[in-house]
Design a protein around this nucleic acid. Structure first.
Length: 789
RNA sequence: GGGCGUAUAGCUCAGUUGGUUAGAGCGUUACGUUGACAUCGUAAAGGUCUCCUGUUCGAGUCAGGAUACGCCCACCA
């Protein structure tokens, strides 16, 4: 049968093939120009605020893992936008502090002694700019729907103001204090660090058994991996129930090589089985040393300098680096016959996560936020947040339980937000700015008083430390509202991030919002997994096991990559998989071709009264189920399940069956039936596009232009999310699955007898039970059977 | 050492509150199509649902235990 309509579907009107490069570029441009994602507060419209992680600017290694975690959150954002929320989704950049400095140091191989502070900061700023640009380009090409007009960087004036306000407020509340005490120190980075900056790493080490002089000329063995700590030894301990050492009670031990006496003490905490049961305590070799030192008020011997060398306490080893001193001391012990034996062991040591250097305990004066006295509160607040997936709360709880230190937020670095404080050098009085004067740069601005209000001294200096990166980024939940001046945007609705920053960004945000406002920082927390390479290894810069993101987008297109990102359930790791990406492309192609098919017949039915049939009702009902299911899954952040539901409907029901069911009607002469088929096709397909829109925004936008009902509507992305609607209640399709079964039977028969599905057969004897009267037309036409016998 | 997660076809994963013969996609094989579809269809092969014990009329699903892998934390005399 000849079809005039078909010939009118010109290449200009609807191209045969979908060109993702051209289309994605077109819509990218359009969305940017029309400021589609720009947030403008509207009275009465519900808001949805997203506190997306401000990434570090070390953006030269963006890979599929980054794409994965950001797009997974973005699916939800797009869904919410279509649900009618006024979405506030600004992007930020964490561009200050140690991560940026380390990045710049590595990239330019900087020797810090040969560069001035301002030159260094200059480089940091330059790299920051470049990093932001890289991110912005990639995010834009992926269709991440952030509002670029509200972009912040943590070192800009407003975020600085908020961070400074935060420490000022905490100081006034007595929750921020400066104190000199043993702290965690990174000798490589030359700064204090916090417990959350630690990682542990296994390494080979030697357990040294060293002879200590005891009373009555006896000797006792002490096992240690850190013999270089000997000069800082302040006591020796044994367990009070250890019979081997009872006779030592109240006596002293002589530290070998250095020949000074230390008291011998008892403690239940000493494990008789470990080492030799005799334990030396130094200031400070490990956590246990610190405990004993605190508990028993032991004296302090500062052995380690800020650059990781021995102080004058080290005697002849003074000035040596820790590793050097260890070797030298072992060698001397050995020569003197004081080293009984050495054993190789695997030891796990705490290292600084930014540089892998083993950390030290150093006596230093730092700023701390009180957190260890408040664990119950952090747990209580953590429970008020909805965790997706819920078991991720465990990570949080374990972290809170393991807290040993107050949160050290001061860093001895260059590039970051300064504390808004001046310090009287004579009496240590902290001089505060007025809140209204924030942000302040104490290095450039004068303090509000020239004279110390406490002691009258004129010797006032700016606080020279800067804030830790988490001390500033933990303010984002109450920074966002400041960006647009809308107090009601706090607490934010959702924070999406990967699980490795639960103990930092998430925990510290809870701390700050609690201490300032007694509120949770965010209502929902959406935790993503990691991107893995094809072998299942974590994607990392070091392994180089990834294709750069821009190359991925170029090769496959944004929709296809986004499609891949739906592959892992929330919180699960996802392997990079080119086949899944190609599948994404396939879905696009299928959508395109279905659209093309519908458009071929999309003429000359205007004004016809549609006469709906069973197949129409069936596909509407299936659609309703799909809408309900997909909506339920999106509501609980289960984008992967939503995608599966949508796909099953589109591929297996709509394209495989319904489209086949209506071909004969579209080509036939029953204008009412044809109009019904066409309007059903269009309506259902339009809803399919909407359901897919959060996941593959480009092709759905392109096709929506052909199928939207309201021609004034510019974009699918703020169109209304589909609703399940009751339709065609007068039609009974309770036996429709029987008709489907009959069609399957005919298809199978043809295939088994090597007959083309398109070929007509004269006679067929149906085995399936079916209401033949009712489905005669459908069966004859879809099965292409002339006569059933 | 403690906690959490994962374990289903060659690969990637679904499997709702326990209920016939455990599914999909990709891959493989055979055949057929190629007038919306650089496709598509029909079928075949492929699983002791990691293992053990239990609860039950009935367990991939629930309980207890084990193993492997991943992650978090602790230990680091």
């Amino acid at each position: 049968m000849e079809n005039l309509e078909k010939s009118t579907l010109s290449e200009d009107f609807f191209p045969k093939n979908y060109d993702f490069k051209v289309n994605e570029e077109k819509w990218r441009k359009e969305w940017n120009e029309t400021k589609l994602y720009e947030f403008n507060y509207q009275e009465g419209k519900p808001t949805f605020t997203v506190d997306t992680p401000p990434p570090y600017v070390s953006a030269d290694h963006l890979h599929a893992g980054h794409i994965m975690s950001y797009t997974q959150a973005e699916f939800i954002v797009r869904y919410k936008r279509m649900r009618g929320y006024n979405v506030f989704y600004p992007m930020g950049f964490d561009d200050n502090g140690l991560p940026t400095e380390r990045f710049v140091e590595k990239k330019y191989k900087i020797d810090k002694s040969k560069i001035t502070k301002s030159e260094f900061v200059e480089l940091c700023l330059k790299e920051t700019e470049k990093g932001i640009e890289t991110y912005r380009n990639l995010w834009n090409s992926l269709g991440i729907s952030v509002d670029w007009s509200k972009t912040y960087s943590t070192i800009a004036p407003l975020p600085t103001k908020v961070s400074q306000w935060s420490v000022l407020d905490l100081y006034k509340k007595g929750l921020l204090y400066k104190k000199e005490m043993p702290i965690l120190w990174c000798p490589f980075c030359g700064t204090a660090i916090s417990q959350s900056d630690l990682e542990s790493k296994e390494r080979e080490s030697k357990m040294n058994y060293i002879k200590f002089g005891l009373k009555d000329g006896k000797t006792g063995l002490i096992a240690t991996t850190r013999p270089e700590m000997l000069p800082a030894c302040v006591a020796v301990y044994y367990n009070p129930t250890d019979e081997r050492y009872q006779y030592l009670e109240g006596s002293n031990a002589i530290v070998p090589l250095f020949n000074f006496e230390v008291p011998i003490k008892i403690s239940e905490a000493v494990d008789k089985e470990k080492g030799t049961g005799l334990m030396m305590v130094c200031t400070w070799g490990d956590q246990e040393d610190l405990e004993k030192w605190r508990l028993d008020n032991l004296p302090t011997k500062n052995l380690i300098t800020e650059d990781g060398r021995l102080t004058e306490i080290g005697g002849k080893y003074q000035g040596m680096k820790i590793e050097e001193a260890r070797k030298a001391i072992i060698s001397d012990l050995s020569e003197g016959g004081i080293l009984e034996k050495q054993e190789s062991i695997i030891q796990s040591v705490n290292i600084h996560e930014r540089c892998d250097t083993p950390v030290e305990f150093v006596q230093s004066k730092q700023w701390f936020i009180k957190i260890t006295n408040n664990k119950e509160k952090w747990l209580e607040m953590g429970k008020k947040i909805n965790w997706f997936p819920s078991h991720m709360y465990n990570n949080y709880e374990i972290w809170v339980d393991s807290l040993k230190w107050d949160w050290c937020i001061s860093r001895q670095r260059y590039y970051g937000v300064p504390f808004p404080f001046w310090i009287c050098q004579d009496c240590d009085e902290v001089i505060l700015p007025e809140e209204k004067d924030l942000p302040v740069n104490p290095f450039e601005q004068k303090p509000p008083f020239e004279i110390c209000p406490k002691c009258g001294s004129k010797n006032i200096e700016p606080e020279k430390d800067i804030m830790d990166t988490w001390a500033t980024s933990s303010c984002t939940p109450f920074l966002l509202r400041e960006i647009v001046g809308r107090p009601e945007l706090f607490p934010v609705d959702v924070r999406p991030n990967a699980h490795e920053i639960i103990r930092t960004w998430d925990f510290y945000s809870v701390v700050k919002s609690t201490l300032h406002f007694d509120s949770v920082p965010f209502k929902n927390l959406m935790i993503s997994g990691h991107g893995l390479d094809e072998q299942g290894r974590k994607i990392s810069k070091r392994l180089g096991n990834y294709t750069p993101s821009d190359q991925l987008v170029d090769e496959y297109g944004a929709d296809a990559i986004r499609y891949w990102a739906t592959g892992a359930g929330l919180g699960q790791n996802l392997r990079f998989n080119p086949k899944e990406i190609k599948k994404g492309k396939q879905i696009s192609t299928k959508l395109w071709n279905v659209a093309r098919f519908i458009m071929m017949y999309n003429q000359n039915t205007v004004g016809e009264k549609p006469a709906y049939e069973c197949a129409d009702k069936w596909i509407f009902e299936e659609m309703n189920k799909t809408i309900e299911e997909a909506t339920k899954h999106f509501e609980s952040y289960e984008y992967a399940k939503a995608k599966m539901a949508i796909e099953d409907f589109f591929m297996s029901k709509f394209a495989d069956y319904y489209v086949e069911f209506v071909k004969y009607r579209l080509n036939g002469n029953d204008s009412g039936s044809k109009a019904a088929a066409l309007s059903t096709l269009k309506e259902v397909f339009c809803n399919i596009l909407k359901l897919y829109a959060p996941i593959i925004p480009f092709i759905t936008e392109e096709l929506y232009q052909y199928f939207k009902e309201n021609k004034n509507e510019k974009t699918i992305h703020i169109s209304e999310w589909p609703k399940a609607v009751k339709k065609l209640e007068e039609i009974d399709i309770s036996d429709f699955d029987e008709a489907m079964g009959a069609i399957d039977e005919i298809r199978k028969f043809k295939s088994e007898n090597q007959i083309s599905l398109g070929a007509e057969i004269n006679e067929y004897k149906l085995n399936s039970k079916v209401n033949f009267e009712k489905y005669k037309l459908l069966l004859e036409n879809v099965g292409k059977v002339n006569k059933f016998v």
